[in-house]
């Protein structure tokens, strides 16, 4: 700053510490210079201001005159190149829109995955609980992780895998886990008819791959055939139980319908699910 304010600042600071140009003279002028006149002065309207403000208005008018005469600077090469480049503005706008779409799609995908996982109670416990709490606040019923065991057993029963009902001894719901060897499933209570050796299995369920039960049957010792039913079937037995009760099929007691005899029992479709239930029915409680 080259004005007089600096050297006069100390002397004037008692009056107005905010502005070095403030002082008795300035205060008087501020009061003189009515704010409504400011606009006229700023327009450089020499004829429209009081006489004592004409020099100031003339100054403004002179400044405005210089501005009006200012020519447009020539366009420099960098700016020219920028203008000639592919539509930078449009590209930026398109890029922004594309980015927004990608972000929105990602968010939607995450929400959908979390929602599906939460609905199936398959999220990690902490996340499941958080989602359940949040959904609960929104009035949506999402199971908590503590409900997980019940849900899974229910699901297993619905699928006819002969998984234990609540309260039954724990059994892996995995159908691949050596069917017929746990001997603990409720299927053991079924009035299962293992069927005669080599009898063709008939089942309402679609046939499962043959290598499921039969291969395992090769590795295990056959359980006693045609164990008599000891209990009535549980009311919530799955398809396996029903099939076990209805099917008059060969079952070697190892989850392989029709494989009660190794020589004869492997022909034809072998519904592993029904066999699993039947196997458990034929196995003793401690049949492992």
């Amino acid at each position: 700053m080259t004005g007089p304010g600096r050297e006069e600042m100390g002397r004037r600071s008692r009056i107005s510490p905010d502005d070095p140009t403030d002082g008795p003279d300035e205060m008087r002028m501020v009061s003189d210079l009515d704010r409504s006149v400011d606009d006229a002065v700023l327009r450089g309207d020499v004829s429209g201001v009081p006489a004592h403000l004409v020099p100031l208005a003339a100054f403004i008018a002179a400044l405005r005159g210089r501005v009006a005469d200012e020519p447009a600077p020539p366009v420099a090469e960098p700016l020219r190149a920028q203008l000639a480049a592919p539509n930078v503005v449009a590209l930026r706008a398109a890029r922004s829109a594309r980015r927004a779409l990608v972000v929105a799609a990602a968010v939607l995908a995450i929400v959908a995955l979390v929602g599906i996982g939460a609905a199936q109670n398959r999220l990690p416990s902490e996340l499941q609980d958080v989602v359940a709490s949040t959904a609960d606040a929104l009035g949506v019923d999402v199971p908590r992780s503590s409900e997980r065991g019940d849900d899974r057993s229910d699901a297993g029963l619905e699928q006819g895998r002969g998984d234990p009902a609540p309260g039954a001894p724990a059994v892996s719901p995995d159908p691949d886990r050596e069917p017929g060897h746990d001997g603990l499933t409720p299927g053991g209570a079924l009035p299962a008819d293992p069927g005669g050796p080599g009898e063709q299995a008939t089942s309402a369920t679609p046939p499962a791959p043959q290598d499921d039960g039969s291969e395992k049957a090769d590795k295990v010792k056959p359980a006693p055939v045609a164990a008599p039913p000891t209990e009535a079937p549980a009311p919530d037995e799955g398809v396996g139980g029903a099939l076990g009760a209805e099917d008059d099929q060969g079952d070697d007691g190892q989850g392989n319908p029709g494989s009660g005899d190794d020589d004869q029992g492997r022909s034809g479709p072998q519904p592993s699910s029904s066999g699993e239930g039947s196997t458990r029915a034929a196995s003793p409680p401690n049949g492992r």
Binding site: G3, D19, T21, D22, D25, E26, M29, V30, L33, R35, D38, V41, L42, V46, H52, L53, V54, P55, L56, A58, F59, A62
Partner: peptide
């Protein structure tokens, strides 16, 4: 901004008077 503008005009006016710059 209004205050700055007002003070700026007052300062200009004061210097115009002191330096006797007349149109």
């Amino acid at each position: 901004v209004k205050s700055l503008q007002h003070r700026a005009l007052a300062t200009l006016r004061r210097h115009l008077e002191r330096e006797e710059i007349e149109p």
